[in-house]
Design a binder for these strands. Structure first.
Length: 554
RNA sequence: GCGCCCAUAGCUCAGCUGGAUAGAGCGAUGGUUUGCGGAACCAUAGGUCGGAGGUUCGAGUCCUCUUGGGCGCACCA
């Protein structure tokens, strides 16, 4: 819609230029907004104020010129008014909106979709939790946000691929194997004291029990070195299966699961290091190998290969991100926990060293979640074993409410997740407010069907009986859905959609309480039913991009 | 010490990248149905946008300083 209005203004500008009314040595960027108040019209622009300086004229005069050119420009425009210091307020004819509403229902599933992203290849990496323990609530937020971004980018016309990076290499894997081994020995009656730097959680005991059941005392008389590979692999696979299961329950799936170990197996880490060395971004010092990241944006140089000869996590991560670009992705988006923010400049400088434009790489930092139960905060740490798992929270409050709560807040602010509130099936829980609207509309359709009034197709329906001001407020909101999706995708801001839906649904509930949809006036009923169907489609598609269901009954 | 994020109504948060009189939900108070779902609707109260400067036609939004909170500053991952 705004795109259409932008075009109108642009041609008005061109006409003004051709007629010599305005100089316009440089064409300004045209910003179209929706005025705060309905009485100001349907669209507005502050263009005249912006032009005042370069044209050396009063904003009001410029607004008058533009207004004149706009009005004779297009018959979709009803009127143009000048307000305040030079706002241009444009009111469209009602037919403008009704025509667009008819199109909205043509392909219900596709409503809200667009090609704004122009098929740009995006790689979205998220969760990527270390496979050393089950997912906790913090990972859940990343999962919900990442999954929604994937759906959002897809709907907005990007070519998006989602990926989970498995850190299945390094010391942590050995610690994991040793932890399980120690628990296994305990089951065999050999209590040697469980080291405090091992993984403490009960899930380690569960894995040890599985091994014990399957293999009995087979490993009892072997040395740790002998059994470690087995315990490591077994624990890793077991935990990874659990993570996949939790994510599946949460409605989150990935296009690829990318193993760090495979990077090493395919010599990709070596290749990346050699390349950097050849380009002289690497030097040796104190028996270690360093990247000159301080030549770029990092505050200091970083170690790639330790004195021990082991490669750092950073080292393989460079190879991983190089690989992402090599796979042809034009936009690489990583979702990281906010505690990793110090790592961002490091990664960026590595990519710059490799000659990539820093804008291809975008890190979204997801702030922490504090879980509140009865007013008390629940702490979370995998190592200590004290945490609330994602699986537990889903079980307690359900997938829909959990996802909604994670998505309704801007990702860069801390989130207080109130378990008691999320569980409530009542008015103070926004997810039910929206779902209730959907169920209510479905109920209207059931009533209509009983009375023999069927929903008509766009070609058969006459929308002219829609005259109510409230109806047009709702129609305009429905029609702005695509723009919300596009904006939300472009800025990677998921919370815009739930806010939009709450607002949309609010106008519906208000409208519903004052107006009858199905009545003796059949023409009006057909028109209103059509509107209700467009509304239902919008709610349903909005919820679906969040991964939240749209129940027909509640 | 250095860096990143946050601060808006009693609470939880929006605020369309600088626009018009700063908005929702919850909570509080008072109301609404002999008709499609009362999980709804309506009304009232509640604010020096943490503070101080600056940029300009115009600042919650941008810049500088400052206060308070969260998180980072590894040859860990």
């Amino acid at each position: 819609m705004k795109k259409f209005v932008r075009k109108l203004i642009k041609s008005a500008l061109n006409n003004a230029k051709n007629d010599g009314d305005l100089e316009l040595s440089i064409m300004p960027e045209i910003v179209v907004e929706k005025p705060k108040e309905e009485k100001f019209g349907d669209f507005s622009t502050s263009l005249a104020m912006g032009l005042a300086k370069s044209e050396r004229r009063k904003p009001y005069e410029i607004a008058e010129i533009l207004s004149r050119h706009l009005q004779c420009n297009d018959d979709n425009i009803d009127s143009v008014a000048i307000a305040g210091p030079g706002f241009l307020n444009i009111t469209m004819r009602r037919s403008f909106f009704l025509e667009r509403l008819l199109k909205a229902a043509e392909q219900p599933d596709r409503y809200g979709s667009s090609n704004a992203g122009q098929g740009k290849k995006v790689l979205l990496e998220f969760v990527s939790a270390n496979p050393t323990g089950p997912l906790h609530v913090g990972h859940g937020r990343g999962a919900a946000v990442g999954d929604m971004l994937g759906r959002l980018l897809d709907k907005a016309g990007y070519n998006v691929s989602t990926e989970y990076y498995i850190n299945d290499v390094g010391n942590q894997m050995n610690t994991l194997g040793r932890s399980t081994w120690a628990r296994y020995l305990e089951l065999q009656g050999r209590e040697n004291g469980f080291p405090s730097d091992y993984y403490q959680g009960d899930y380690i005991k569960d894995i040890a029990r599985d091994i014990h059941e399957q293999h009995g005392s087979e490993f009892l008389h072997k040395t740790e070195d002998e059994v470690l590979p087995f315990f490591r692999e077994y624990s890793l696979n077991s935990i990874l299966d659990g993570i996949k299961e939790d994510l599946a329950k949460f409605g989150v799936s990935f296009d690829q699961w990318f193993s760090e170990k495979k990077l090493y197996d395919h010599q990709l880490v070596e290749t990346a290091v050699n390349w950097l060395r050849k380009e002289k971004y690497i030097y040796d010092k104190d028996g270690a190998v360093w990247l000159k990241s301080s030549d770029f944006n990092d505050e200091k140089d970083r170690v790639l290969i330790k004195q021990s000869g082991e490669k750092t996590y950073f080292c393989s991560d460079i190879a991983y991100h190089k690989n992402k670009i090599d796979r042809g992705f034009e936009w690489i988006v990583d979702l990281w926990g906010a505690d990793h923010h110090g790592y961002v400049p490091r990664m960026k400088s590595a990519l710059q060293a490799m000659g990539y434009d820093e804008n291809v790489f975008k890190v979204m930092l997801i702030q922490f979640v504090s879980l509140k139960r009865d007013g008390d905060k629940v702490s979370m740490s995998t190592r200590s074993g004290e945490f609330e798992t994602l699986a537990d929270v889903i079980k307690e409050v359900g997938v829909d409410a959990t996802r909604f709560f994670f998505l309704m807040r801007s990702s860069d602010t801390h989130l207080d997740f109130d378990l008691e509130l999320a569980k409530k099936a009542s008015a103070d829980n926004p997810v039910f407010y929206i779902q209730y609207a959907h169920a209510r509309i479905c109920s209207i359709f059931r009533t209509a069907t009983k009375q023999g009034i069927k929903l008509r197709d766009a070609v058969d329906v006459d929308l002219s009986p829609l005259k109510n001001e409230e109806e047009f407020i709702m129609i305009k909101k429905i029609l702005s859905f695509t723009e919300i999706i596009e904006k939300s995708a472009e800025l990677l801001e998921v919370h815009r959609v739930p806010f939009y839906l709450q607002d949309l649904v609010g106008t519906f509930h208000r409208y519903y309480s004052r107006n009858r949809i199905v009545s003796d006036d059949h023409d009006l009923s057909f028109a209103r039913l059509f509107l209700m169907n467009c509304l239902r489609i919008t709610i349903c598609n909005g919820l679906s991009v969040m991964g939240v269901s749209s129940p027909e009954r509640m």
